[in-house]
Nucleic acid binder design. Structure first.
Length: 472
RNA sequence: GGCGGGGUAGCCAAGUGGUAAGGUCGCGGUCUGCAAAACCGCUAUUCGCGGGUUCGAUUCCCGCCCCCGCCUCCA
């Protein structure tokens, strides 16, 4: 298995730290719950889901942690503006986040630690204390505690940044006069009036943790000093992940992460989808357009994680049509598999793959496009065999088993068959009668009425078949 | 300016030192009363541009152009 490690900027052979246990520890940066996450955020989570599921398919056990940032500038501002306590303000977005995960069929992490949990606050304070004692951090005049990046030689190595070249983009206000170096980042932010009652006591006075330290505290608390894989979006490389390395290694003295994986952005009209650009869609926005969670899942998953993905409604339609092709294929296979059929001649060429090309494609830095290509090639091959009546029940079952296996990774199968509404069933019965009388005009009329109700009727040699069709 | 990612058919997108998977869309055909689904066929003499290496490059090297992102709290 090979992954592109951001740290080395190379494709590397992946080896778990603990090969015997076949356990892989993964830390993934989660949402800041100040508003509903947008689908660009979920692209990252779907990439991580794909990663986890593939590792599991390959027989590894995955222990994955995803943090929830429920205290920072934005959440505090949001709570203040809404005039509700911070915890109440963030609760609604936590809940929305979990709903969206479910809609997109993203496997929940094993743990979702929140930054405001006392045990993590305590741990953050402990870590900051160690960093200060080692000269890696200092309290400035503004009472905040900062990381002294010049004392950590590897700082900048992940992002490949030369610290002397750092430029301010003006995006964030600096209290430059208080810091020794413009690149020093806050570990502990001293309380000020804007924070209201959001405050914790610390040896450095009241305040709240900086953003980066929470991930160091949670990852080491839940996964140990060293973890196998750490993921996030490319925008997290600097400064967030750089800071995490400095903090975690500054405390433990051990190499923090073996493999860093970062996914590219979701774009809209060629630009990064972002709250600040106001060009984002949420999961409910997409559902409101008539698409399903699995369609969005597929649309966000089908492009390699390191390539930018432009979100379009054409892309959503393509996802829909591709899934419909899979659905049709599965329905045909099920039908044949259930027949107690006599031996049909199934040529060897149509035998299901013991071959594991699908998994092997994913082994190669999660090459999902190649994997899906293999799936669709298999679909065409088996459809052809079925058209020629050359696929027997045993072979169909074997193909279904194969699908079942790869679908543990994809998880894009349609929801269980939806019951045909009585209204539609009634129209279908009428149409059947009309067809018996060869009353084509009436038959077509009924087909149209059924279509308006969101169902498609097909005439096969075994009679009418009804399939649910999403509106185009 | 520094550091990354990307540039392959209308759109999306794999890939290899030997002449381009797959999806979607469109067109033609088989099937059908007509459709739908499925299948068959067609759709990039060409892989951002210009050089170089090579018998041969989209793939390796050099230079350049374009798009997107990061450069101190954005997945």
């Amino acid at each position: 298995m090979r992954f592109f490690n951001t740290y080395s900027r190379e494709i590397e052979e992946f080896e778990p730290r603990d090969p015997a246990a076949r356990l892989i520890r993964i830390y993934t940066c989660g949402p800041t719950v100040y508003s509903r996450a947008h689908i660009g955020n979920f692209r990252a989570y779907i990439f991580e889901d794909l990663l986890q599921r593939h590792l599991e398919l390959r027989g590894y056990k995955v222990h994955r942690v995803m943090n929830i940032t429920d205290v920072d500038d934005k959440t505090i501002r949001g709570a203040r503006e809404a005039k509700v306590p911070l915890a109440k303000f963030t609760q609604q977005f936590k809940q929305a986040f979990f709903e969206d995960l479910k809609t997109l069929r993203i496997k929940p992490a094993d743990e979702f630690p929140a930054a405001t949990e006392q045990r993590y606050i305590d741990r953050m304070i402990d870590m900051i204390g160690v960093l200060i004692s080692r000269g890696l951090a200092y309290q400035a005049e503004d009472k905040s505690v900062y990381y002294r990046i010049n004392k950590f030689p590897n700082y900048g190595k992940l992002a490949h940044f030369d610290l002397t070249q750092l430029q301010s983009t003006g995006r964030v206000k600096h209290d430059e006069y208080d810091k020794e170096h413009i690149g020093d980042f806050a570990l502990w932010k001293a309380w000020d009036e804007e924070d209201g009652d959001v405050r914790w006591d610390s040896p450095w006075g009241p305040g709240r943790p900086g953003w980066h330290i929470e991930c160091s505290a949670m990852s080491t608390a839940l996964l140990g000093d060293q973890i196998d894989i750490h993921c996030g979006g490319v925008d997290n490389i600097f400064p967030h992940h750089e800071a995490e390395i400095a903090q975690s290694e500054g405390v433990t003295g051990k190499k923090f992460v073996c493999c860093w994986l970062h996914c590219a952005h979701l774009l809209v009209d060629g630009q990064k989808m972002a709250k600040s650009l106001d060009n984002f869609y949420t999961v409910p926005d997409v559902l409101a357009k008539g698409y399903t969670g699995r369609e969005l899942r597929y649309a966000l998953m089908r492009v390699h994680y390191r390539a930018p993905l432009n979100f379009t409604w054409d892309g959503m339609n393509e996802a829909r049509e591709s899934l419909a092709r899979i659905d049709e294929w599965l329905a045909r296979l099920h039908e044949i598999a259930q027949k107690e059929n006599v031996q049909l001649s199934t040529a060897n060429a149509q035998r299901p793959i013991e071959k594991s090309e699908f998994e092997e494609a994913l082994d190669d830095d999660l090459n999902i496009s190649a994997a899906l290509g293999l799936l669709f090639e298999s679909i065409r091959e088996t459809n052809r065999a079925m058209d020629e009546n050359k696929l027997d029940a045993a072979t169909a079952s074997a193909w279904l088993d194969w699908w079942k296996r790869i679908n543990t990774v994809l998880d894009v199968e349609a929801e269980a068959e939806i019951v045909v509404p009585p209204e539609v069933a009634q129209l279908a019965r009428e149409r059947e009668n009309a067809r018996r009388e060869k009353n084509w005009k009436r038959s077509d009329e009924l087909r149209e009425r059924i279509s308006v109700l969101g169902w498609e009727v097909r005439d096969t040699k075994d009679g009418q078949k009804l399939a649910r069709r999403a509106a185009k």
